[in-house]
């Protein structure tokens, strides 16, 4: 037994030595850099460094993926990793962890830090106070803190109701039963905007249509979202839509039942090519590129970006796998034009 004990101790010491050996040399030069923080303006030739903190994952086929895809697209356009670095923190559902992540990225000299969720706003502003040389962005929000003296915060939002309206028009035209269904997550924010727009668009196209709306009370309850879809189908719906990462469950059900689906946030066509008609896709590339250009010109914040159909931040992407009738596409285009020229208000008062 004594022998075993000594063995154990020896093993531990070796392990500790190995780890310490690795840690020590690396730690020495890094420590001062971590403390100096805030020297964000990248010298020429160094890549532009963007970090993003997100509540879900880069593969959620919804809110988080939309932004990540945007970043990757911009990266490709700028010339790959040598021109722009992307770092991300996924599944930051705990806001205190997100706050730590935002601060670390600032410490590490990232040029632009994106807090991709309204719940991160307070933490981000706190860090933004301490790092006036670093740019921050958050959404969906319209508050850049200008009135409180912040000059290094961008805000971004999506007029989800616009694409919601167009999707509502498409749904009402394709609907034969007189009922369409909406699988919502939590009754707030981006999802609520989209759903309200959807209902307005559907009603404007067919005043007699019933738009049934349910919420699952969660962004990730895939199973309940699926059952909500089933419920809508039983209640007569033949076209469905919904929001947040949970909808993949609902799409699975719609596919099985042969019921049409309209997507939002990301392009969901690949999941069910036979039944997805169209998606409102959030294209953040324009906003990101403009932010980067502004930062490189020395303007670190103060702008609110709004994705709209007009500025191409919102796109209605039809699924080629589904043969959408031409008159439906024409009506959708008409709705898009109406929203752009202001003759259509996508939210009913």
């Amino acid at each position: 037994m004594q022998k075993r004990t000594i063995w154990l101790l020896a093993l531990i010491s070796v392990l500790i030595l190995v780890i310490a050996g690795c840690a020590a040399p690396a730690a020495a030069p890094a420590a001062p850099a971590a403390e100096s923080g805030g020297e964000a303006a990248a010298p020429a030739g160094e890549p532009f460094k963007v970090a993003i903190v997100m509540p879900s994952t880069i593969t959620d086929l919804a809110w988080s993926q939309a932004m990540y895809d945007g970043l990757v697209a911009v990266q490709e356009e700028m010339g790959g990793e040598s021109a722009m670095e992307i770092a991300y923190s996924e599944s930051m559902f705990n806001v205190a962890d997100a706050a730590a992540a935002i601060r670390d990225y600032a410490n590490d000299g990232y040029n632009l830090i994106i807090a991709h969720g309204t719940q991160y706003g307070n933490s981000m502003f706190e860090v933004a106070t301490d790092f006036p040389e670093t740019s921050f962005a958050w959404g969906t929000a319209v508050d850049t803190g200008k009135d409180k003296g912040y000059e290094n915060v961008f805000a971004y939002e999506a007029n989800a109701q616009e694409g919601g309206y167009v999707n509502g028009v498409i749904a009402a035209l394709l609907d034969e039963s007189g009922v369409v269904g909406v699988v919502g997550p939590v009754e707030a924010g981006d999802a609520k905007l989209y759903i309200d727009g959807f209902a307005t668009g559907a009603k404007a196209t067919n005043p007699d249509i019933a738009v049934n709306i349910s919420y699952t009370g969660s962004f990730g309850d895939t199973a309940l979202a699926a059952e909500a879809a089933n419920t809508h189908i039983s209640a007569g719906a033949d076209v469905l839509t919904g929001s947040a990462q949970q909808v993949v469950g609902a799409i699975g059900v719609a596919k099985e039942a042969g019921v049409l689906w309209l997507g939002t946030q990301s392009d969901q066509s690949s999941l069910a090519p036979d039944i997805v008609v169209a998606n409102q896709v959030y294209d953040w590339t324009g906003s990101i590129k403009d932010m980067i250009a502004k930062i490189q010109a020395g303007e670190l914040g103060g702008t609110v970006y709004t994705l709209t159909l007009e500025n191409d931040g919102l796109k209605i992407v039809f699924n080629d796998g589904y043969a959408t009738p031409d008159e439906v596409k024409a009506a959708a285009d008409e709705a898009i034009q109406g929203i752009i020229d202001g003759s259509i208000t996508p939210l009913a008062e």
């Binding site: 086929l61 895939t222 199973a223 469950g249 059900v253 999941l271």
Partner: peptide, 18 residues
């Protein structure tokens, strides 16, 4: 039963505490 029976998709943490 969820991933190949009722939903026909897989997503991270799809059980959500079930």
């Amino acid at each position: 039963a969820l991933s190949i029976g009722l939903l026909n998709v897989f997503q991270e943490n799809m059980t959500n505490g079930l």
